[in-house]
């Protein structure tokens, strides 16, 4: 932990800020007739507005109504965070459960599952969302049972269903990764030792392998988060949820986008950094997430 290392780590969020700023001013470079150069003055004005986030207002593009950004912004924030949380919990637990069950299957079935999973992984996420919505409509028409709230209507939003739909793609990814890791861990000496001591297969998996699996899975957390955010955008849009990503999609004023994006991505970034720190404490390995 030298001084330059700390300096480098301190600089990292700054780079991220630059990136978000570039994305937030990007709409200024296009106009109806093509590309344009907005001029430094316009960019400077955006910077000025960002400096006073408390007084930011956002304009509804269809009705033209102006509202204060704060504190309305916290509503979509909690909506998005709970959808992501539900999805993460559902996908991780079900993938862990299923892969522990599948640990006892033959090699042939394992290969089949892996190839099916990798094909399912490449199918666009829109397909999952739309097919699940079509399925729910079909169930409703057939039976008249509405077993989950379908779309949000402003005040009361559906959170559980978007969460479950959002968990589909991470579930496939988790299942594939965990199965491959279990296969990998089986060759380790500690598994042989545990088996030779007469421990039950299930106990070896659940107690001894699981710890290593979770650590190895944590290394993938940045990728999983990026997968989920991209998926969240389409889930929130199609389920009509008033969430962060839809907010970012609809309100194009650069200062509003910048502040909203920081508010949304900063907790996620901090979370990733905490995982990084935990990994360092547990395994003494430096990773950069």
């Amino acid at each position: 932990m030298s001084l330059s290392y700390i300096f480098r780590e301190m600089l990292r969020p700054f780079y991220l800020l630059v990136g978000i700023f570039l994305v937030s001013i990007s709409p200024m470079f296009t106009s109806v007739s093509g590309l344009q150069w907005p001029g430094f003055q316009a960019i400077g004005e955006v910077l000025q507005k960002i400096m006073s986030p408390g007084s930011l207002i956002y304009t509804n593009p269809t009705s033209g109504v102006e509202r204060d950004l704060f504190p309305i912004i916290f509503k979509p924030f909690w909506s998005s965070m709970s959808v992501i949380g539900i999805a993460l919990i559902v996908s991780l637990t079900s993938a862990l459960f299923l892969s522990i069950l599948l640990r006892f299957v033959s090699g042939r079935l394992y290969k089949g599952i892996m190839s099916i999973a990798s094909i399912f992984q490449t199918i666009p996420d829109v397909v999952y969302v739309l097919v699940s919505q079509m399925f729910l409509v079909w169930v409703y028409i057939q039976t008249g049972v509405k077993f989950a709230k379908f779309t949000g209507t402003g005040t009361e939003e559906a959170l559980l269903l978007p969460g479950v739909v959002l968990s589909l793609l991470p579930f496939i990814y988790f299942l594939k990764t965990i199965l491959a890791m279990i296969k990998d861990e089986e060759g380790e000496p500690y598994v042989d030792l545990a088996a030779s001591k007469g421990l039950h297969k299930l106990r070896i998996v659940c107690v001894h392998m699981l710890r290593n699996l979770l650590v190895r899975l944590a290394y993938q957390s940045k990728f999983i988060i990026s997968l989920m955010i991209s998926n969240l955008l389409i889930v929130e849009y199609l389920f009509n949820n008033f969430g962060m990503t839809v907010f970012l999609l609809n309100y194009t004023q650069p200062p509003v986008f910048f502040v909203t994006a920081i508010l949304f991505f900063f907790p996620i970034y901090v979370g990733l950094k905490m995982i990084e720190g935990l990994l360092y404490l547990m395994t003494q390995q430096e990773v950069s997430l």
């Binding site: 994305v23 940045k222 955010i229 389409i234 999609l249 994006a261």
Partner: peptide
Amino acid sequence: QVISVMYFIPASLIAYKF
């Protein structure tokens, strides 16, 4: 590092806005 912002902001969101 600047590019790594693409991990957080989906490409389709940037494309839509732009």
